[in-house]
Design a protein around this nucleic acid. Sequence first.
DNA 1: CCTTGGCACTCGTCGAGCGCGAGTGCCAAC
DNA 2: GTTGGCACTCGCGCTCGACGAGTGCCAAGG
Lengths: 340, 340
Amino acid sequence: MVEDRRLAVLRAIVEDYVATHEPVGSRSLVERHSLGVSPATIRNDMAALEEEGLIAQPHTSAGRVPTDQGYRVFVDKLSQVKPMSAAERRAIGSFLDGAVDLDDVMQRSVRLLAQLTRQVALIQYPSLIRSHVRHIELVSIGPSRVLLVLIADTGRVEQRVVETGVAMSDDLIGRLRSRLLERVTGQRLVDVADRVSDVAEQFGLDERPAVATVLASLLETVVERHEERVMLAGTANLAAFGEDFTGTVRPVLEALEEQMVLLRLLGESRTTDVLSVRIGHENEVEGLSATSVVTVGYGPGDDVVAHLGVVGPTRMDYPGTMGSVRAVARYVGRILTEQQ
Amino acid sequence: MVEDRRLAVLRAIVEDYVATHEPVGSRSLVERHSLGVSPATIRNDMAALEEEGLIAQPHTSAGRVPTDQGYRVFVDKLSQVKPMSAAERRAIGSFLDGAVDLDDVMQRSVRLLAQLTRQVALIQYPSLIRSHVRHIELVSIGPSRVLLVLIADTGRVEQRVVETGVAMSDDLIGRLRSRLLERVTGQRLVDVADRVSDVAEQFGLDERPAVATVLASLLETVVERHEERVMLAGTANLAAFGEDFTGTVRPVLEALEEQMVLLRLLGESRTTDVLSVRIGHENEVEGLSATSVVTVGYGPGDDVVAHLGVVGPTRMDYPGTMGSVRAVARYVGRILTEQQ
DNA sequence: CCTTGGCACTCGTCGAGCGCGAGTGCCAAC
DNA sequence: GTTGGCACTCGCGCTCGACGAGTGCCAAGG
């Protein structure tokens, strides 16, 4: 089929361009790939592909370069995720198994991913909102100051100092503590608000203001900005593609400094193992229109508690990158399962 | 004095070069500064300055550029820290006063500093080792798991889950907790090791293994890698000097990804308000030989509990940068004082 | 209808050659 | 110690032309 060969040509163009970073011409294409036809035929195909908007020429009489759409077709129809070799998987495992706590797991994972892909890696901390309460603790640390500690089943620990305004007796703190424990232990964080909504009523009128303050802080801890944390690694790898999109590095760095942007990048998927690939302009984030973002959800079992991924140039090795992202996500998910 | 004029020439060269980023010649020098002598005289002075190694020419028949040594002399003898204007100080104050907790203070400060200087800013979290214990807490969160929480007077909170191996009764935890509180509250972190060294002996033989495990974890928390945290902002500003030292951005980014390197950069000074300026090759860190690092200690009152600073190109505005660094350090110190 | 070899054409890259001008060093005069 | 003059250096930017990779089109062949 003619149509089939055209797609084969597109695949060859993407592969060559990713490998060489140079526009690829019809001659070199037939030389490097066994397409079984002459350069002239390829040229016709190329003209058709250009017509369809899948490839473009930087300038007349130069080879062709894939467009964002071209990469899109490549990723969707022409490539498959490249699985890691056994050796690579062993390396990942042994590297991540040494982690001692959640911070350590996150840090090691994101660095590993940056190293594997030679791109900028992102990892989101397990989202509080999607995990369960393992323990909650109230500690008096002053006359009208209480330390609120929340431990999630993902190992994440959040703390917060609450200024209660009025003094709370140790007895009151103790009673509030056991009441909270009884109400929320094992519950999903997202349900905490409902579970504690009537707790204040169960205390004496004089105690309610202080109790309410603590509860408000608890809900804030669950919901607020602290809820989402993102860790970054491999920004040095940006320098490598500086040659390619000179002057574009700055907006990328700027975008990467904004937590909110990073969170948007990491996406919203609820299913593990389904990779999301956003290519070039598909990316809504300003300043990242020359980059592609590959992300995936991770978590214990099939639950998605957070996301991780990489940001790289649109001309990246998609199969390899996707393989690395998926492999790391699976390992992190496994570690979270074990810790549970 | 001839010697005086030479230094004036050096100052003028540094100022012009910092402003224009172009080698400065004798003619433009007399035009832009009122030195009261002719270009020829300046040329003689320049020859002398070059002899001394304070300036250099990129190539024959180009203007002069300050050397690292030249900047050194400029910083030491020819410039003074530029104080912030009243408006700037107000802006700093209002920007930092909105912070709700230590993380917030750190994040706001480092971003502010990056913005003020248009360089890469660093801030070290208040060092545990130099602060005092406000409170310590033990919380049972499972049969043989204890959560250890340490609150420093700087507002910093460290937590750690301890696997005790054997079960600890609530009673035992309570006794250990009060014993620890009594021993270390208000003490300097650095003295904690001494203060708790004999605590284990005060428990029954059967309780000692668990107690020892908890104590070991406590000491580890005080001493270990978690002790030092550094936050970074403004890496996007690196792109701006990419034009100047192309190809040098990568090693800089690499250096900035290493916590250990950052800590070394931030230095060891024990006195607040004394700015440290390391210029170009004075920097021992590999990859940062084209950058200058301006740091200062900060803390409540005159105590130094940590450091902050910036990394930028050697041709930076030293007086301005030093002013910004010092101003931010003072504000952060004040905030810490208030929180105490 | 698809494929192919041929061919004219486009256009970016590279290197050589050249003039300009900023800037220097030196020197003789003050 | 300072100054003006002057010859000299040398990087930068420009033009020009040769080169070559790559294209589009066309007519011939399967």
